[in-house]
Computed example of a mutant assay.
Amino acid sequence: MNPLVREQILTIIASIPEGRVTSYGRIAKMTDGATARMVARALRDLPSGHELPWFRVVTSSRKLADHSGADEQRRRLIDEGIAFDVRGRISVERFWP
């Protein structure tokens, strides 16, 4: 991945406000050429112990992606006041920007 695009992705993720979420696709659209899959890869490649709010990135269907950290992601989002409906979706009002 182009280092400039990776830096753009990480900067955008760092900017997601507490109590809000955004999607892989929305992040991709804010960059110079990333795709939603590239955003997912950048998140997957983060070193352990990083401080980025990775848990605030969800799918365009407003659900959590199926990955090993999904339980922790759900817990952290709930701790920030984000609720899930019976289908596991987050309210569109919680999306940023």
Rank of each mutant, 00 (worst) to 15 (best):
S91E: 06
G19V: 05
A65I: 09
P3Y: 08
G49K: 03
R75Q: 13
K29T: 15
A42Q: 05
G69N: 08
I90A: 08
A14T: 07
G81Q: 06
V57T: 01
D45P: 10
I13S: 00
H50D: 10
G69R: 06
V57L: 00
E72I: 09
A65E: 13
T59R: 15
G81D: 07
I78Y: 13
I90V: 14
I82Q: 01
V5E: 05
E51R: 05
S61L: 15
W54T: 02
P3E: 11
R89A: 04
N2Q: 14
V58E: 02
R89V: 03
G81C: 04
L52T: 08
R89I: 02
I16D: 05
Y24F: 11
V58M: 03
K29A: 14
I78P: 09
A70Q: 13
R87W: 01
F84K: 07
V58A: 02
S61Q: 15
P53W: 09
V21R: 08
D66K: 12
A34Y: 04
L77C: 07
D66C: 12
A42E: 07
T35H: 08
R41N: 13
E18S: 15
I13Q: 01
A70I: 07
T59Q: 15
R20H: 13
T31S: 13
R75M: 08
V86W: 00
I9S: 08
P47A: 14
R94Q: 02
M1N: 02
R94N: 01
A40Q: 03
V57A: 00
S23T: 10
I12A: 00
S48R: 03
A40F: 02
V5D: 03
D71G: 06
D66F: 12
R26N: 09
M38F: 04
M1A: 04
G33W: 12
S91I: 08
A28R: 06
A70K: 14
V21I: 14
R37M: 15
T35C: 08
I82A: 02
S23H: 10
S48T: 10
V86I: 08
P3K: 11
T59I: 12
T35D: 07
T35V: 08
P53C: 09
I90E: 04
W54E: 01
E51F: 12
R44T: 06
S68N: 11
R6K: 10
Y24T: 06
R41L: 13
S15A: 13
Q8M: 11
R89D: 01
